[in-house]
Amino acid sequence: MNTIQVKLWLLTLLFIGMTVSSCEKDDAGQVNRLTETDFMLRAADSDLFEIQTGQIASGKGTLAEVREFAQNLVIDHMASSKDLKNLAAQKKITLPDSLSAEKRAIRLRLSSESGTAFDKDFVDVQIKAHDEAIKLYEQGARELQDPDIRNFATNTLPNLQAHREHALMVKSKTDAL
């Protein structure tokens, strides 16, 4: 092969490599895009979890701050759950009426605990759960195509962020126990 053929061959390989690389990125982007249905299913699971664990903590929490935080979670997540259910009905998306296996296991663990161990675990669980929810809602606000569902994500996000901040404040109290 002469140098011109080698250069053409290398350019061809480079072009093929770039084409394959760009296709992989497109495919990955499509696969990783959050769908409206997935968002709504995950949001419903999150709301259910917050409501159910909040109800447990309202009765089991030893610190008044834990019980107050739990009651706020129940009230706020019941409201967002109602809005989510109404939106799902409009979009003909069926939401779950029970927790995912992962969240059910955490709820079961919490319900078996008591005292300060419960308070500490509950607050740690809420921080993690709200980190996950915030990430989901931020992704929804960025990626969702349906304007109604995207607006729901955008409008609910500040409340989730406030819950996380409240959880961090309560954690400072439970860490002192």
Rank of each mutant, 00 (worst) to 15 (best):
M1W: 06
T3E: 11
V6Y: 05
V6Q: 07
K7A: 08
L8Q: 09
G17P: 01
M18G: 15
M18T: 14
S22F: 12
C23K: 03
D26S: 07
A28S: 08
Q30L: 13
V31D: 04
L34D: 04
T35P: 02
E36N: 07
T37K: 14
D38T: 13
L41C: 03
A43H: 05
A43K: 06
A44E: 09
A44G: 08
S46H: 08
F49D: 06
F49L: 08
I51T: 03
Q52A: 05
A57W: 05
G61R: 02
A64Q: 15
A64G: 02
E65Q: 15
E65S: 15
R67E: 01
F69N: 02
Q71E: 09
L73D: 09
L73V: 02
V74W: 03
D76E: 10
D76S: 14
H77I: 01
H77T: 02
M78E: 11
M78H: 01
K91W: 03
I93A: 07
D97T: 13
K103S: 10
K103C: 02
A105G: 11
I106L: 13
L108H: 14
L108V: 14
L110Y: 13
L110C: 12
L110P: 09
S111W: 10
S112P: 00
F118V: 15
D119Y: 14
K120G: 03
D124T: 13
I127M: 02
A133D: 04
I134L: 06
I134F: 08
L136S: 11
Y137N: 03
R142F: 04
L144S: 08
D146S: 07
P147T: 13
P147L: 08
D148P: 00
D148H: 05
F152M: 06
A153I: 04
L157I: 11
L157V: 11
L160S: 06
H166V: 03
V170L: 04
V170A: 07
K173W: 10
K173V: 06
K173R: 11
T174D: 07
D175K: 13
A176T: 07
